[in-house]
Amino acid sequence: MRDRNIFLIVLAFVVIGPFVQPKVIITEMLIFGIVAVANNIMIGYTGMLSFGQAMFFGIGAYVAGLLLKAGMPLIVALPVGTLFVLVLSIAVGYFCVQRTGLYFICITFAFNQMFYFIAYSWTGLTGGEDGLPGIPRPSLLLDPVAFYVFVAVVFLACLVAMKRIVDSPLGLICQTIRENPSRAAAVGYNVKLYKLTAFTIASTFTGLAGTVYAMLYGIVPIDQIHWLKSGDFIFMTLLGGTGNFFGPIMGAVGYIWMSETFSLYWARWPLIMGIVFVVVVLYLRGGIVELIGKVYGSIQRAREAP
């Protein structure tokens, strides 16, 4: 399928979704859709797996939440929150890209927990274990429909921006690094610098999604910065499929749908999610994208055969 056709399908989902399902859930799907696609810039395009993306999501949410609580307008809170994450991700990323592979995973994971502990201990600022409550929405966005439209616009803008990034020369260099880092270095690319760039871009979009999330329920629960959330982000990306730019959106939609559904019936619902993760790993590598590809392929073949 051509990218433009997929984009139209995504657009259709954004428009029709809120009529079929509660707006809050679709809103959440879009917010985490940004995160999953951003995550794929690292996993799918550059070949780096970060187990710490929740720190950027959480910090974006905390900073924007605190600014909104302090009475700052939206036009200040969101950009400042995002910028804060941008600067922070450069600093954290600098450490992380020094090492590759398993080491990289370990370091991102450990940094995630460090920021979790800071948020957990600094109760005066973040509310600690209870989360950061009472975040006001600007009066323009108080209406659920208005807020949905706002999130939808942010989501589509992020998609377009990220698509342009991965299609740019920068995106191609990232893919070269994924395929063969030593050859990329031999050709003259500064591998660490490009990895840091990919890390920063992905983390900044994740942080931006976090700033929007702060307004969704008016509270930032501490779970949003816990490393478990980082694992969920990876699951969303892999469930959708890393082979396609738009794939992770389906992963985010599937994840939110499952967690909303299972959590209604059983307090121990993460157990079911764990089982779903296992099934995906054992039988659905390549994610929903590959599944659709297979179904699509077999329909094509059935049509061609007389």
Binding site: I105, G231, I234, F235, F277, V278, V280, V281, L282
Partner: peptide, 9 residues
């Protein structure tokens, strides 16, 4: 990694 994360959960 996702598998072991799932087992942890």
């Amino acid at each position: 990694l996702l598998f072991l994360f799932a087992i942890a959960l």
